[in-house]
Design a protein around this nucleic acid. Structure first.
Lengths: 333, 333
DNA sequence: GGTGGATTTGACACCCATTTCAGTTACAAG
DNA sequence: CTTGTAACTGAAATGGGTGTCAAATCCACC
């Protein structure tokens, strides 16, 4: 592994001059620079970024810590982050906390000295569980979570208004008995979505005790909910599932039972996973631009790193949009 | 930012002793260690991984360089890599070459000093375009590509045998006029798949001039192919699309035109994207375990890093399996 | 008490590049 | 010919740790 010292020696100059020449500082004679560059090329010299970052006190990398590394959500997020970060010539260091809070703290610690800033998505949307975030001593933006003590910038999806949009849409399509399949109780996204649903039902229909089936964001919850609703022989007119996975399997199960989804019963989801437009009938759902979520967060972090003060209340919530499809309109395709 | 020097001073010991205590070397008195640990905790000391890796000459990180950062393929791959790498307590540094060869070389260079080893997936499956790989000077495993000069270990999917499997399956299901929609001409996966198709047709049916429609791995190619086939009013019995994306839209288009896919015409794809089992009829396709591809590559790299000699011909090809579904059997679901 | 040996501890060089500061050279002006 | 200034160049400090080697301490035993 060739170092700058060897390049300097080969070119017959000091390491300082070599460093200056290779970094494009103008105070080196053209002739000297040429000699150094030739030597570097000859020896196949590649600067050691680790050593460089030690003196420069910046690593040109940013760390991303996510709870899980799979699914469309993850790849979209990374893509958005990469878009922003790549433009700034920085690298991405990936940390996976595998869902546990201790591992998250560990992951954050092991990032020190490797990255200039951090993008963290807390496991259960409860940033406070990560301990005293102020002691991280490293610029951080929270992904899809709002900090308890508003001192960390964040970017998140407006689950509440998304849920309101779906619910209002269902009411406008004529539904009155609207069931909700919730997500995990501890999940913040889930509870925000539920709250949006509740509020609209109360405001628009005066319904203060809506029917809520407990779910878990996974397929089986959709199937179970369908069974439950069918067996009880309850006259429901619409179902709002807290995410698409549950909605998809709910639709499959209802269809199997002879229910015409989109006509007899309206179904809507949340997330707009790619599947949503491939099932039949296509699923009405709430679309949030995850790529934009990622890139917004990354850009915010980049601004933070460039020394900009964001203030204590710096946070962005991304407004989702409603994707109306056949599962609530009964259109033939 | 507190350094080990401050911890040492606070504990009244030398930095050497502090380092030993914090790294769990046993030659420190329990009493001294306790004092140092207390000081570290008090000062909220976090070791600077960058500085550490400089002396240790290892970074505990491995670099992953991919051509594109989106889609299921990517996230599955990362997940597999992470599984293997996380177990070894290492980090993942992500580099995106955005498809260009120059950027790839740049990405590789900028990894020096940041990572111990590299997992590289060349943009167009032609490793040789990356220049003289031997000069990288860093342990590398190639993803989904075979090096020209067999001196770099690699892991890839056996496209050829996968394509053979589908084609043979179509023949067994009674099809004789089998059309192929190819991938991009420059893509190695695509050409290997085409070769498998060609060989089977020649061996089993004596067909040396099969009909091949040029595609590009994207949805529109599927639609175009469908139009072409329908307009020509050509009596085709089966279509093997070089990937699922094209197959999915081909099916949609054929169905719209009144063709009963799975009965009138058999359709098969390649990749087994999640969508494949959600469309109707479900798509027969070739399933390769991308997660395993990633983790195999990562494990190979880890072995390389632990000093193991893999020999010059070290390579793994992952055998795909055939997922037979309704699009070639005509089953009702 | 002195000696040998093992166990802890500390001073310092080192990893590799950047950067400061001082020194050298070239050239123009006085 | 000296002096001043500007333009380059080099030696050494720096960043935050680790590892080597020598010094210091401790204990047991003679």
């Amino acid at each position: 592994m060739v170092t700058i010292r060897e390049v300097a020696k080969a070119a017959g100059v000091s390491v300082a001059t070599a460093s200056r020449a290779l970094n494009g500082l103008s105070i080196v004679t053209a002739e000297t620079r040429a000699r150094i560059e030739a030597a570097a090329a000859e020896l196949n010299y590649v600067p050691h970024s680790g050593a460089r970052s030690l003196t420069r006190r910046k690593t040109d990398a940013i760390g991303v810590i996510l709870p899980d590394l799979f699914g469309e959500f993850f790849s979209e997020m990374i893509r958005g982050i990469d878009m922003a970060v790549h433009g700034a010539g920085k690298h991405l260091l990936l940390g996976n906390m595998h869902g546990s809070t201790e591992e998250t703290v560990l992951a954050i610690k092991s990032m020190r000295g490797r990255v200039d800033g951090l993008l963290v998505m807390p496991p259960n949307s409860r940033a406070e569980s990560l301990g005293d975030t102020a002691t991280w001593q490293i610029p951080t933006v929270l992904l899809n979570a709002q900090p308890q003590n508003g001192d960390i910038p964040f970017v998140s999806v407006d689950n509440y208004s998304g849920a309101r949009m779906v619910t209002e849409h269902l009411i406008e399509r004529g539904a009155r008995k609207i069931v909700h399949i919730s997500g995990p109780a501890s999940n913040r996204d889930a509870s925000e979505r539920m709250q949006g649903y509740r509020d609209v039902l109360r405001e628009r229909l005066g319904d203060t005790h809506p029917i809520i089936l407990p779910g878990n964001f996974r397929e089986d919850a959709g199937r179970n909910a369908a069974q439950l609703l069918l067996n009880r022989d309850f006259a429901f007119e619409a179902v709002f599932a807290a995410n698409d996975m549950m909605a998809v399997d709910l639709i499959a199960e209802l269809t199997r039972a002879g229910v015409r989804v989109g006509r007899d019963v309206l179904v809507a989801g949340f997330d707009d996973i790619p599947l949503a437009r491939y099932i039949s009938p296509q699923l009405t759902t709430v679309h949030s631009d995850i790529t934009r979520l990622g890139s917004s967060a990354a850009m915010m972090l980049l601004r933070l790193l460039s020394g900009e003060e964001l203030g204590t209340d710096a946070g962005i919530t991304i407004s989702p949009t409603l994707a109306v499809r056949a599962s609530t309109t009964g259109a033939s395709v």
